[in-house]
Amino acid sequence: MTTMTLPAIASGDSLDRYIQQINAIPLLSQDEEVSLATRLHEHNDLDAAGKLVMSHLRVVVSIARGYAGYGLPQADLIQEGNIGLMKAVKRFEPSRGVRLFSFAVHWIRAEIHEYILRNWRLVRIATTKAQRKLFFNLRSMKSSLASLSHTEAKQIADDLGVKPEEVLEMETRMSGQDVALVADDGDEDSYAPIDWLADNDNEPVAVLERRATDRLQGEGLQSALEGLDARSRRIVEARWLADDSGATLHELADEFGVSAERIRQIEVKALQKMKTALAPA
């Protein structure tokens, strides 16, 4: 299925056009699903696989919309979900009597979850399988916007197989709000955290650490980038070092004439190579 060409996914108006395109693709009946899946498994018919994927792209969009609150590009969420859909089509066995829609939901969500866990800033608090389940289900399991009581926390903990303390900690971190570091200029009597912080800028250890960090971020990063081939460097710079929100996988796929999955593979390999190059000697 690597040769399959999906409609282009971008942002803004392009994303709206993509959704219009996939919504125009006819849905399949159960008999059509069975016939296409049989052709795929018995004859490795990639055209049949393509029809199965294309007819379920709208399912991916519907699922991806449920993760809009994580602040990640909708186009990337959809792209990751599409990868999950293709994996589901490859493993789909119509003889079990289950519709592809029901079977694919797990694979679509799994790919989106993995993408969020790799990119969202709070993922480090969800390290075990149980904590990841808590991470993705806590919002929906709360009965109101108010803080959880110990009874509610214990019920959620029992349902998800974690400790009540973990539920309360997760709720605190996920609901935490930013606090202004500097006080309002218009209020002479107000105080902010900066008023209580010591100035350690000239402390010798801090000066040495800052110089080492600056050298690593300047010379070290430049050296690591120079160790990449031209395509890998372009992908890393477009995805991670751009001034704006960065390019999507599909935008880069169009630029290089390969699949979005191939772009992701190159990105992962390049970042690992840079990490090795930046590691202390």
Rank of each mutant, 00 (worst) to 15 (best):
R173I: 09
M174V: 01
M174D: 04
S175P: 00
G176P: 02
Q177M: 12
Q177Y: 03
D178S: 14
V179P: 02
A180W: 09
L181Y: 13
L181K: 15
D184F: 01
D184K: 10
D184Y: 03
G186N: 12
G186T: 04
G186S: 04
D187T: 04
E188D: 07
D189M: 07
S190P: 00
Y191S: 06
Y191D: 09
D195V: 03
W196V: 01
W196A: 03
L197H: 04
L197W: 13
L197E: 13
A198V: 10
A198F: 08
D199E: 09
D199L: 05
D199T: 02
D199K: 10
N200S: 10
N200A: 15
N200D: 14
N200G: 11
D201R: 14
N202S: 13
N202M: 05
E203I: 01
P204Y: 06
V205T: 11
V205E: 14
L208V: 14
E209Q: 10
A212T: 06
T213K: 11
T213N: 13
D214R: 12
D214G: 05
R215H: 05
R215Q: 08
L216A: 14
L216G: 02
E219M: 06
G220T: 04
G220K: 11
L221H: 04
L221G: 08
Q222H: 05
Q222E: 12
Q222L: 10
S223W: 01
A224N: 08
A224Y: 04
